[in-house]
């Protein structure tokens, strides 16, 4: 038992509570990414910097964003192949170095999808093949899941932190793959189910040169 007024007791009670260091670190990293002028989302249409801090923050955001968005391949800045496989990020241990490097890739190929959408299903094999064949390019492949409100929200949060939300807000339909240049903030290629794989590969290849 202790003696004191109610205010003191409330102050003591709440004063003893603090955020866990892990969560604090995550939030700090996200806020730090926001201080970087190059991290401005492209709703302002500004070029996106690809520094390591942005990459780390994006990796953290990926972990936070749950399994609705996952990367399927990456290549490091030196062009060495670094396959990180298909990694559902929700609550799983991931290779942070891999994520950071992948997040530094200049180009991002985002496949927009809704579970059960025939167009998205039709593009899927070609998308997977592109991941394999374009392994030597500085491109990160990802999925933007729009199946339900929660997945849309999580995917949107991820896209915001990556600085590609400008391209992901209602612009693309399910079954579309957009190739985004994070350095210039432009959509440099758009692929749909109406294109065959060789044509898609050519479009991607041309966009990146």
């Amino acid at each position: 038992m202790s003696r004191g007024n109610l205010r003191d007791h409330l102050e003591n009670f709440y004063g003893e509570k603090s955020l866990s260091p892990e969560t604090a670190e995550r939030l700090r990293a996200l806020a730090a990414a926001d201080t970087d002028p190059s991290h401005r989302t492209a709703s302002h249409r500004q070029p996106v910097g690809l520094n390591r801090l942005t990459g780390i923050a994006a990796g953290i955001a990926l972990i936070l964003s749950g399994a609705s968005f996952y990367m399927v391949s990456s290549r490091d800045a030196g062009g060495r192949k670094e396959s990180i496989g298909r990694i559902p990020v929700g609550g799983q241990v991931v290779n942070h170095r891999g994520f950071a490097d992948a997040a530094e890739a200049r180009y991002v190929a985002v496949k927009f999808q809704i579970d059960g959408c025939p167009r998205a299903a039709e593009v899927e094999p070609a998308f997977c093949e592109m991941v394999d064949k374009l392994g030597d390019k500085p491109v990160m492949f990802g999925r933007y899941d729009m199946t339900n409100a929660v997945n849309r929200r999580l995917s949107h949060d991820w896209a915001c932190v990556m600085g590609i939300d400008w391209a992901c807000q209602g612009a693309a339909q399910s079954g579309t793959i957009l190739l985004l240049d994070r350095k210039t903030g432009d959509v440099v290629g758009k692929l749909t189910d109406r294109q065959q794989l060789p044509e898609m590969m050519r479009t991607l290849d041309q966009a990146m040169h």
Binding site: M1, S2, R3, G4, N5, L6, R7, H9, N12, F13, E16
Partner: peptide, 15 residues
Amino acid sequence: WHDDDRVFATNGAFD
């Protein structure tokens, strides 16, 4: 806030 200088329970009970 200050009108009662009184005995309070422990933090567990307060919680």
